[in-house]
Each structure stands twice: as C-alpha cells, then as structure tokens.
Simulated assay, not measured.
Amino acid sequence: MAASLEEFIRSSSTPVFVDFWADWCGPCKMVAPSVKKLAGEFKGRLTVVKVNVDQQPAAASRFQVQGIPALMLFKGGEKVWSTAGAVPYPQLKQAVESALR
C-alpha cells in the first residue's frame, strides 16, 4: 500500500488529504467528523484518503508517521502541510483552502 499510496498522491489531479488513524485512537475519533466534513465540502477539488496504521504499517512508516492522528496534505505530489493530533475543523479547512489556491 505504501508504494501505491505514494503513486496515488503523485498522480492525483486534485490535492490529497491523508488521515493516518487507528480504531483504538481517541483523538482520531475526535478528528474523523472534521475529515469527513472536508471531504464533503471540497468534493471534486480535494481527495481524502484514510489510512489505518494498524492495517497498513508500511504506509505509516514510509510517510514517517510518529503519532496519530497524522494529517497530511499533498499538492502536485509534494507535502504542503502536515500536523499530528486532533486539530479543529477551521484549521483543517484553512490548510486545504491555501493548497487549493
């Protein structure tokens, strides 16, 4: 999955927002509704991908995920923004809006 995720990010015609998460992660559950809201609000202009680090440890390793939730935004195959922890929706939206400019 790590290689195919990388390839997907590189070949995507829209910016890609990646949420690295796990079932047992409380902060991941807190940020999940905001990630879902982003996907709906920016539909067609942003691709949202959720990566379960327990099921895809190679992807987490490849993207150097140290803590979850790890949120990353890629534009043109390059990482333009990242953060870890439960981030409020306005901050996520601002990162996406600046990537779409």
Rank of each mutant, 00 (worst) to 15 (best):
M1H: 14
M1Q: 11
M1R: 10
M1Y: 14
A2V: 13
A2I: 08
A2Y: 12
A3S: 13
L5N: 06
L5F: 08
E6T: 12
E6L: 07
E7Q: 15
E7K: 15
F8K: 15
R10M: 05
R10N: 10
R10H: 07
S11G: 15
S12N: 04
S13F: 10
T14N: 13
T14H: 11
T14R: 14
T14F: 01
T14S: 09
V16S: 10
V18K: 12
V18Q: 06
V18C: 00
V18G: 00
F20P: 10
F20L: 08
A22L: 04
A22I: 08
A22F: 10
D23Y: 01
W24H: 11
C25S: 13
G26E: 12
P27Q: 08
P27K: 03
P27L: 04
V31I: 14
V31K: 04
A32C: 10
A32E: 05
A32D: 13
A32S: 14
A32R: 11
S34G: 08
S34K: 03
K36Q: 15
K36Y: 14
L38T: 01
L38C: 06
A39I: 08
A39K: 14
G40T: 00
E41M: 03
F42T: 05
K43D: 07
G44P: 09
G44H: 05
R45I: 08
R45W: 12
R45P: 15
T47V: 07
T47K: 09
T47L: 10
T47C: 02
T47A: 10
V48A: 03
V48E: 03
V49F: 13
V49H: 12
K50F: 08
N52F: 03
V53S: 07
V53C: 05
D54C: 01
Q55Y: 11
P57L: 01
A58V: 06
A58H: 12
A59T: 14
A59Q: 00
A60D: 09
S61M: 12
S61D: 13
S61G: 13
R62Y: 12
F63W: 04
Q64V: 02
Q64S: 15
V65S: 12
V65H: 11
G67Y: 15
G67R: 15
I68P: 13
P69F: 06
A70C: 14
M72S: 02
M72N: 01
L73S: 02
F74Q: 01
F74D: 01
F74C: 09
F74A: 02
G76H: 01
G76D: 05
G76F: 00
G76P: 00
G77F: 09
K79P: 09
W81Q: 04
S82I: 10
T83A: 09
G85F: 00
Y89S: 00
Y89H: 05
P90G: 05
P90A: 08
L92T: 10
L92H: 04
K93P: 03
K93A: 03
K93Q: 09
Q94G: 00
Q94R: 11
A95M: 04
A95V: 06
V96C: 03
V96G: 01
E97T: 15
E97V: 15
E97I: 14
S98L: 12
S98D: 07
A99K: 06
A99V: 03
L100Q: 02
R101P: 15
R101W: 07
R101M: 11
